[in-house]
Design a binder for these strands. Structure first.
Lengths: 217, 217
DNA sequence: ACGCTACTGAACCCATGGGTTCATCCTAAG
DNA sequence: CTTAGGATGAACCCATGGGTTCAGTAGCGT
C-alpha cells in the first residue's frame, strides 16, 4: 500500500515524503470499509500515519478528499477494464470467438469482484444523493468507456462475419448485462465472495447466451 | 404514496388515528430522499405530523424504524413483481410468446423505475456496511423470488416447446440481467428518468436478445 | 547558521442529531 | 364527569466529528 517510509523507533516519517499519496491511499481504505459519513478524518489521518491538520493542508475538506479517492479508483478500474477488452483486438480475429469471449468474460468478472470495484460501486451508490455528479464520472469510466471499447471490437467481428449483423452498442450493452447482472445477484451486492468455480460458470453461461443471441449461425 | 388509512375496523389502532402507519410512511419518504444517516428523526416526525417522542414510543430507535420501512417496501415490491410475472401463467400458452414477454418486460421495467424501487435499491446499497443482513431480505424478495417465479413459467414454456430446452433458473437469471443491466446504466443508477420510449426500446431489445438465446427454432 | 516550509499533536470551537425527560393536553372509555 | 393513557413540544443531555488554532519541531536549501 502506501509508502510507509521511515525508520523504526519513536520516529515517524517526518520528511516530505509524499504524504499526499499516503493520505489518498488511506482515505480509500477507510472510506471503503466505513462509507463516507462513517469515515472520520481522524481515522484516515491515523491510517496514513499523519496528523489531522496535514490532511486538511493537502486536501481542503472531507468532500475534496472523497472526490479525489473516487476519481483515482475510477481511473484505475477504467484502465484495467480497457486493457482486458483490448486483448480482443489481437486474439479474436485468429482464435475461436467463443474462447476469446470466455477469456474476456472471466477477466472482467475478476475485476468486478475485486476489492476496488466493490468499494467503488458501493461508495458511489451510497452517495447518489449527496454527490450526484460523481455518478457521471464513475459510470463514464467504469461502464460507458469499456462498453464503447467492446462495441468497437464487436463491430469488427460482425463485419468479418464472426458475429451476426447487429448494433454493436446494443450487443456490448447486453454482453455486460449478462455478465454483471448475475454477479450482483450472486455476490449479494458484493457481501458474499463468489467461489472461482461459480465465477467461471457464470462467465461461460453468459458467453453461451451471448453467442446464441449474437453469434453467426 | 402513503395513504394514512387508519383501518378503523378490527385494527389495533392505538390512540386516535393510526400514528404508527403515518410514521412509517413518513420514514420511507424521508429516508428515500436523504439516506439513512442524513435523515434525522426530527424531520420524520414533522413529516408524519407527530412529535418526536411519539416516534420513539412506537419504534424503539432509528435503526428499528429503518428496518421496518425497508421491510415494508420490499414486501410491496415483491408483490408487484410476482403479480406481473404471474400474468404469464394465463397469457403465454395462448398468445405469441414474444408479445407476452414484451409485455412482461415493460411492466418489470416500469416497476424498477418507480420511486419505491429506486429508493429501496439505493438505501440498501448505501447501508451494505452497517446492516449487511438487510441485503438478504431485500434481494430475496425483490430478486430471487421473482426470478424463481419466472423460472417456473419458463420451465413450462420450455416443456411445451415454446422455448428451447434449457435450465429455467439460468434463463430467468439472464432475462432479468438483460432487462435491469441496461436500465441501471441508462438511468445512471436512478438519477436520470428514462423516457418512456427509450424504456420500451430497452424492453424490446432485451426480449429480442433473450428469444434469440432461448427461443425455439 | 539561518530561516523557510512542512509536519505534528493536542486542545479547542461548534453544529448536528440520537435519545430522554417532563409537565401538560386531549380524547376515548366507563 | 372522571380518568387513564396516548400524544405533545420544548428543553435537555451527551457523543460524535468536521474543521481550526497554535506552539513547537524537523529537514532542506542557501
Amino acid at each position: 500500500m502506501g509508502s510507509v517510509a521511515s525508520s523504526g523507533a519513536g520516529g515517524v516519517s517526518r520528511g516530505r515524503v509524499d504524504k499526499r499519496q499516503a493520505i489518498l491511499d488511506a482515505a480509500f481504505a477507510v472510506f471503503a470499509r466505513r462509507g463516507y459519513e462513517q469515515a472520520c478524518v481522524q481515522e484516515i489521518a491515523q491510517e496514513a500515519r499523519v496528523a489531522k491538520p496535514t490532511v486538511y493542508s493537502h486536501l481542503n475538506d472531507k468532500e475534496t478528499l472523497f472526490r479525489h479517492t473516487i476519481d483515482a479508483a475510477a481511473d484505475i478500474l477504467m484502465a484495467e477494464n480497457l486493457a482486458v477488452v483490448e486483448r480482443l483486438r489481437d486474439r479474436a480475429p485468429d482464435d475461436d470467438v467463443r474462447v476469446a469471449f470466455a477469456d474476456l468474460a472471466q477477466r472482467l468478472l475478476r475485476i468486478c469482484c475485486g476489492e476496488r470495484a466493490r468499494a467503488l460501486r458501493w461508495l458511489t451508490y451510497a452517495q447518489v444523493a449527496r454527490f450526484p455528479d460523481l455518478i457521471e464520472t464513475v459510470q463514464e469510466r467504469t461502464a460507458h468507456r469499456p462498453r464503447a471499447a467492446l462495441a468497437d471490437r464487436l463491430a469488427r467481428l460482425s463485419l468479418a462475419g464472426r458475429l451476426r449483423p447487429c448494433d454493436p452498442e446494443q450487443a456490448a450493452e447486453h454482453f455486460f448485462a449478462l455478465l454483471t447482472g448475475p454477479l450482483e445477484s450472486r455476490s449479494r451486492l458484493g457481501t458474499r465472495s463468489v467461489p472461482a468455480a461459480e465465477l467461471r460458470g457464470m462467465a461461460d453461461a453468459a458467453v453461451d447466451a451471448f453467442l446464441r443471441a449474437y453469434g453467426s449461425d
